[in-house]
């Protein structure tokens, strides 16, 4: 749909709105996201090392149980009602890693549980995470295609 052009009165008002609209604190948010994201990744690395040592796995195999554990914690914190409070401060730091993906699914499951297992949880589980999957698959396909066409490894 083409964006409707603003008439001069609307354009003048939009300028006024910009004047009063407080800007999100970008630097503070970026710093907090950097630190909290770093903590999440540090935990992930510690888990990877732990599973590698305990289960005697090579690092690339040890990542799988580590990711599953991080997802578990994301889900647990969401269902305890703590994740959204942490995310208020941590922002992208907890949203970008798998913890954010877990949160988007579990929060949807909690929210739509009253609509029943099929039309509620089943259908709405991916209401937020769905586009991540869709575009993840599309991107993987395109990258795979390029990889297949380009010569060499």
């Amino acid at each position: 749909m083409p964006a409707k052009k603003l008439n001069p009165k609307q354009a003048a008002y939009q300028k006024k709105v910009k004047k009063y609209e407080p800007k999100p604190k970008a630097l503070r948010n970026a710093l907090l996201a950097f630190l909290s994201g770093g903590v999440v990744c540090l935990l992930g690395q510690a888990l990877t090392d732990f599973f590698g040592a305990v289960m005697d796995l090579p690092p690339e195999k040890a990542a799988t149980p580590a990711v599953a554990t991080m997802i578990f914690f994301g889900a647990l914190l969401t269902s305890l009602g703590l994740f959204d409070r942490i995310a208020r401060f941590a922002g992208a730091g907890v949203a970008v890693p798998v913890t954010g993906f877990a949160n988007s699914m579990v929060s949807a499951a909690l929210e739509f549980r009253e609509e029943g297992p099929i039309l509620g949880i089943g259908a709405k589980l991916f209401s937020l995470a769905g586009s991540v999957i869709t575009f993840g698959v599309v991107t993987a396909f395109i990258v795979g295609l390029i990889h297949a066409i380009l010569p060499g490894r």
Binding site: N29, G81, D84, A87, N103, S107, E111, S127
Partner: peptide
């Protein structure tokens, strides 16, 4: 907006 437990950051406005 979003499910209540979704961890998004609120805008200052």
């Amino acid at each position: 907006r979003y499910p209540t437990e979704y961890g998004g950051q609120r805008r200052p406005y």
